[in-house]
Design a protein around this nucleic acid. Structure first.
Lengths: 200, 200, 200, 200
DNA sequence: AATGAATGAGCGTTCATTCAT
DNA sequence: CATGAATGAACGCTCATTCAT
C-alpha cells in the first residue's frame, strides 16, 4: 500500500510546492542539513516527483535564487514606481526603503540561498539584475540633473553593498527597525549623491 | 611498514603546515571537495596528527579565517601608519589603497573562507576587527575636524562593504588594476566623507 | 498537452517497434544502461504502452532472445536445405558456414541478449532449439552412413560451442573473414566427424 | 556505541575475507542482489573497510575473477604435471579430467563471475591464460609427434569450449558424474587429436 | 606524539512499475 | 487503447572522525 495517495496536479503547482518546501527547510536547518527526503516529505510528494521536476538538489537552490531576486526587483520597482516620475530624490528614497524592508523581511532566505551555497558571488545574474535596476534609477536622475557622477555602476555598487553591510550589522545587533535604519542610511548615502538629506 | 617515517617537529610548524596545505587546497578545489585526507597528504603527516592539532575540519577553516583577518588588519595598519598622523584624508586614502590591494591579492582565499563556508557573516569577529580599525581611523579624523558624521560605524560599513562590492564587480569583469579601482572608489567615497577628492 | 499524439497502430507493429528499439539500444549502451524511458522514447510511444504489451523490461529481453534464436535457426535451415538431401558432408558444411556467418553478423546482439542478462545459460530453450537442429542433421548423416559416433548430442555440443569459441576468438582479434574462419574450423571439426576435409 | 569492535588485521586477511564473503553471496543470491552491505556484514567489517580495500563493487568481482582463473590453472597444471612428461595422450587426458572436475566443482561461481557480470567474454585475460596453458600442452605433444594440426589455438578453443558446452549440458540435465562425462568427452575429443581413444 | 586502518551514519540519485486521466 | 506524471524502494559510495598500535 502506498504511503502517498497518487494526486495528479499541474506542473506549476508541484514545482511551487517543492520550491516552497525547500525554502522553509533551508531557512530552518540550512541547505546541507536539508535532505531531499525532507523536502519531498514536506511537499507531500514522492521522491521520484522531485527528480521529475528538478535535475538535482542544486537545481532547486538555483530556482529559489531566481525567485528570490525576481521578488526583490518587483517589490522595489513597485515602490519606486509609486513615486512621481520626476522626483528623483524621492525615487531613490523609495528604492532604499523598499530594499531595506525587503531585505529585512527575507534575509534568512537570502543568506541560505546566496551565501550558504557555493555560487560565484561575483558574476551572478541575480545581483546583476538588482544592480541594473538601481543603475537605471541613478541614470534617470542624472539626466534630469538631480545628481551627477562619473560612474553610475560604481555608485550603485557602493549604495547596494553599503546598504547590505549596514543592515547586516543591524541584524547582528538585534536592531530591526526599518525606519531608523533607512534614516541612518539616508544620512550617509545622500552625501554620496550630493542631494539634500531626504525626508520621508 | 608506515608510509611516513615519524618526524617530530614543533607544534607551530605542524599547525602552520596543515593550515597552509588546507588553504591551497581550499582555494584550488573548494572546501567541500577538499577532504581531510587531501590535507594530511599534502602536509605529509598522518591523519591522526591532523586531529591532534585540530578538533575538526571546521577548526582549520576558523583558524584560516583568523589568520586571514589578522593579515588584512596588519597590512592596512602598516600603510596607514606610514602617513602623517594628522593628515587624515591621506590616512583614509592609504586605508583604501591597502584594502583594495590586499583584497585583490587574496580574494580567492577570502571567498573560500568567508563565503563558501556556512558562517554567520553577520556577527563575525573577523569583520568586526576590520570595521573597528576603520572606525578608529574615522573617529580620529572627526576629532581633528577632517570630517564629521552622525554615526561612524554606519559610514565605516558603507565604506568597507561598498569597497568590497566595487572590487568584486571589477574582479568579475576581469579588471585588476589597483590604481584605477582606487581612483574610482575615491571619487565616490570621498563624497561620503565630504572631503576634497584626494590625490595619491 | 501530450507530447505524443495518440496514434493507433496494430499490436504487432507496436510490439515490433518496441523490440527493435530495445535491441538497438541494448547493443549501443548495454541492457542495464538502457532504461524503459529510452526504449519508449525511441519507439515513439508512451510508457504505459510499453507495459501494455510487455510485463516488464525482462520480458522484452526474452522476446528478443526468442526472435534471435528463431532467426538463427531459419537462416541455418535455409542454407542446409539448399544442399542435396543425401550429401551429408555438404549439409554439415552449409550448417557451419551459415552458423559462422549469422553469428558474425549479429554477435553484438547475441552478447547482450544471451550473455549480459542473467539467464540460465544451461537450460535455455533457445540453445536447445539450435542444438536439436544440429543433432537432427548429424543423425540423418549417421543413418546414411556418412559418419558415426556414440552420442550425437555430445558431438553437436562440441561442434556448436567449439565454433562459438573460435569465432569469439577471431572477433576479439579483429578477424572477421568468414571464409577463412570456416576453412579453419572445417579443418578441425571434420576430424571430429571423421570425414574427409570438406571443400566448399 | 559501535556495532563492530575495532579489530586491526593484516590487509591480506581483510581482502581475503571480503572476497570470500562476496563469493558466497554472489553464488547464493547473484551479483545484483548482493549489496555491499551484505558483503561487509558477512565479513564482519564496516562499510568503510570495504572501500578501503576496493575501489568499487566491480573491483571485487574482478579480483574474484582473477582468483578463479588462477585456481583453475593451478589445479589443471598440478594434474598434468603428475603425468610422465612424454606421455602426451595421458597429459591431455589429465587436462580434460582436471578441467571437468574443477569446473563441476565451481561452476556456480564461474557463472556468476564470468557470466552474470558484464565483461567482454571475448578478450578476457582469464580465458587467455587457460587457453595458453592448453596450447602449450598441445604444442608439446605436437613436437613429440603425438598429434599434429594446422593451428593449435583453434584446436585448443574447440577443446575448451566444447568441453564447457558438454559439461554445461550435463549440469542442466542433472548429471554430475565426472567419470562418465570425461569418458564421453574423450570419445569425441580424441578424434580431434586423432589419437587412439584413451583409457584412464 | 604520530600513524593510518577501521568505522558507519548519511545522502543523492535511479528507474522499473503503476494508475489517474 | 494510450499517455506520462507519480511513486518509493533500493544502493553505491563518501568522508569526518576514532582509536589500536
Amino acid at each position: 500500500m502506498p504511503l502517498l495517495k497518487r494526486r495528479v496536479l499541474s506542473a506549476e503547482t508541484r514545482i511551487d510546492d517543492l520550491i516552497s518546501a525547500a525554502a522553509s527547510l533551508f531557512v530552518a536547518k540550512g541547505i546541507d542539513a536539508t535532505t531531499v527526503d525532507d523536502i519531498v516529505m514536506r511537499a507531500f510528494v514522492g521522491k521520484g516527483t522531485f527528480y521529475h521536476y528538478f535535475d538535482s538538489k542544486t537545481d532547486v537552490i538555483l530556482a529559489l535564487r531566481e525567485r528570490f531576486a525576481e521578488n526583490f526587483i518587483q517589490r522595489v520597482a513597485a515602490a519606486v514606481d509609486a513615486c512621481p516620475a520626476n522626483d528623483h530624490p524621492a525615487r531613490f528614497g523609495a528604492w532604499l526603503t523598499a530594499a531595506v524592508e525587503t531585505y529585512l523581511a527575507s534575509y534568512k532566505l537570502h543568506d541560505v540561498v546566496f551565501h550558504d551555497f557555493t555560487h560565484s558571488r561575483r558574476q551572478s545574474q541575480e545581483k546583476d539584475g538588482v544592480i541594473s535596476q538601481l543603475v537605471s534609477l541613478l541614470e534617470d536622475g542624472e539626466q534630469a540633473g538631480a545628481w551627477q557622477f562619473a560612474n553610475a555602476r560604481t555608485v550603485a555598487l557602493v549604495l547596494f553593498d553599503g546598504m547590505h553591510g549596514v543592515v547586516d550589522d543591524a541584524i547582528a545587533a538585534g536592531r530591526r527597525d526599518t525606519e531608523v535604519l533607512v534614516k541612518q542610511l539616508l544620512d550617509v548615502l545622500s552625501r554620496l549623491l550630493q542631494i539634500e538629506n531626504l525626508q520621508r
